[in-house]
Design a protein around this nucleic acid. Sequence first.
DNA 1: AGTAGTCTAGTCAAAGTTGAATAGAAGGGT
DNA 2: ACCCTTCTATTCAACTTTGACTAGACTACT
Lengths: 213, 213
Amino acid sequence: MSAIRLLVLGAVRQHGRAHGYQIRNDLEFWGAHEWSNAKPGSIYHALKQLAKQGELLAHEVAPSTAGGPPRTEYELTEAGTAEYFRLLRESLVAYDQKADVLTAGVGFIVDLPRAEAVELLKERVRAIEGWRASVTEHYVPEDGPEQLGHIGEIMNLWISQADSGVEWTRGFIARIEAGAHVFSGEGDPFVGVLADGEENPYATDVRAEGDDD
Amino acid sequence: MSAIRLLVLGAVRQHGRAHGYQIRNDLEFWGAHEWSNAKPGSIYHALKQLAKQGELLAHEVAPSTAGGPPRTEYELTEAGTAEYFRLLRESLVAYDQKADVLTAGVGFIVDLPRAEAVELLKERVRAIEGWRASVTEHYVPEDGPEQLGHIGEIMNLWISQADSGVEWTRGFIARIEAGAHVFSGEGDPFVGVLADGEENPYATDVRAEGDDD
DNA sequence: AGTAGTCTAGTCAAAGTTGAATAGAAGGGT
DNA sequence: ACCCTTCTATTCAACTTTGACTAGACTACT
């Protein structure tokens, strides 16, 4: 699954109550439209689906106070909160080599207690190493990787990505254990939402050069 | 865009003429259903789309020789060949952090001349480094990354992935320059298709453990 | 006071993706 | 002879994603 549900649930939760355009702006502030599918259509679609499935509660609201069509405000239900934490934990543990889900998880990691965050990341390391072991075992049988021709280079690529994933995760664990960041229950959290009227320094294309996704 | 069009065009091209089930089997042989969206529905959809867009030529064929419904065989048109090479070159150069496109490109890289492969990979390195520079420049302004709280960790993650991408690419370039693999115009290519009747050792789930995509 | 531009907010059709369902033929056992 | 499973090959409905489009309201300028 993509990162959109986690992103939308997390963004709504930070506001308490929010409409689509606010979510869209927050996610843009985080650069999420760059590294995930958090584009307008997907956001509004996710909001509607989550509401339909009982994870968000939709409030039909009178015409907008600031121009534009009438807007709908959403807030998390209990089921939505449960789903949010389930997705968050899963995003930190699972090694599915989709960078967007992990990125979203890191963005919300401080909603968990510090000890749990560390434990989940350690499980992530174990998962990657298990995956690595199963790949090398299956794809490099007795006769060595040369057999596979250039297709063996694909395995090199995967392995190199796995190893760099382990390295980054270990570094992150070390920083958290050394006291970095403010986690759940440790006082005023760092919140990446825009205050009313604050302008967004990252609103437009950050990856202007060297990229053509 | 996903890797499906490149995968399908490349697979059809290796056969000269192929029907959907053959493509599906080849891609499964390469493990593509694991690291990309090359699943039956997507493959057949891509074949139909590519035919509709004039990149594949569809031959309606009499009922299958080996059971099952009648099948359609496809072959590349001139436009399809051009599109194939365009997508292949793009996949090797672009840094869009979607691993599946790069993986597909590596799988077909030997369809290019050796010198061009090296040149494209060197361009890839430049692209990643350019992206890296633009990210660090934009997201770490005068006051250092601490400002961003745990959101700064997301940048760490991206940077670490970029660096490992550069390292893998450099290693690959070195191996190619040292004479590894058989490229276009250098004799019998290594072809990852199954001979008729050969069985597929990788047909079923390779990533059985340590994974829950 | 008209109007061009921009900001707010959301909708829509077209395309892509998924997993399950369908259906014919061959093989193998009882 | 019959049934059950497996292999071949594809289709389908449901869902997701995308990018362009719509449309109201404010704002700055002539």
